[in-house]
């Protein structure tokens, strides 16, 4: 019963890997992609925030997408990247991902809205749909849902 969006427009997404899963992020939110660097821990902050980094003179908070999604903690490797996101009217924020795979163009047609059947409720906040690229399924992230801290644990 997935509702199909009749809109034929397409958007570009950055596809990132988190374990075996692929996630797509609307390219308009991406400000920059930087290599892993020293992160200064902020005591008593949310569990999934690793701390803050210096990006060209600005102090930017960095969150672990893995911890945010309740996955096991990051193992930093040479592919680990920090995506700097700049949502409109919000300050910049970084998210740590295992690796960045590619830039992908998806028709709005090929994205299905997530149904409550195949996703647990709290994950629903983070996703805005599931895109199909050949055999692969790419979960499209709802960035505002990810960075905003609504359901404070």
């Amino acid at each position: 019963m997935a509702e199909v969006n009749a809109n034929l427009e397409s958007k570009q997404y950055i596809v990132v890997n988190l374990g075996n899963e692929h996630y797509g992020i609307d390219i308009k939110y991406i400000d920059n992609i930087v290599r892993m660097q020293n992160i200064t821990r902020v005591p008593k902050s949310q569990e999934y925030f690793k701390g803050v980094i210096n990006l060209r003179g600005e102090v930017i908070p960095v969150m672990s997408l893995r911890l945010r999604f309740g996955l096991e903690a990051d193992q930093y490797a040479k592919d680990t990247r920090i995506l700097i996101l700049k949502p409109e009217s919000h300050g910049a924020i970084g998210i740590i991902v295992d690796s960045v795979k590619e830039v992908l163009t998806l028709d709005n047609d090929s994205i299905e809205k997530p149904s409550s059947k195949n996703a647990s409720d709290d994950k629903l906040v983070f996703l805005s749909g599931v895109g199909k690229n050949g055999d692969e399924l790419i979960s499209i992230l709802n960035i505002l849902g990810v960075i905003e801290d609504k359901e404070d644990e």
């Binding site: 902020v42 005591p43 008593k44 902050s45 949310q46 925030f49 600005e58 102090v59 908070p61 919000h90």
Partner: peptide, 18 residues
């Protein structure tokens, strides 16, 4: 430098510096 509001900064941290 101020720390953005996404991250819950405890009151005992008044800011950050580079």
């Amino acid at each position: 430098k101020s720390i953005s509001k996404y991250i819950d900064t405890p009151k005992m941290i008044s800011g950050a510096t580079i």
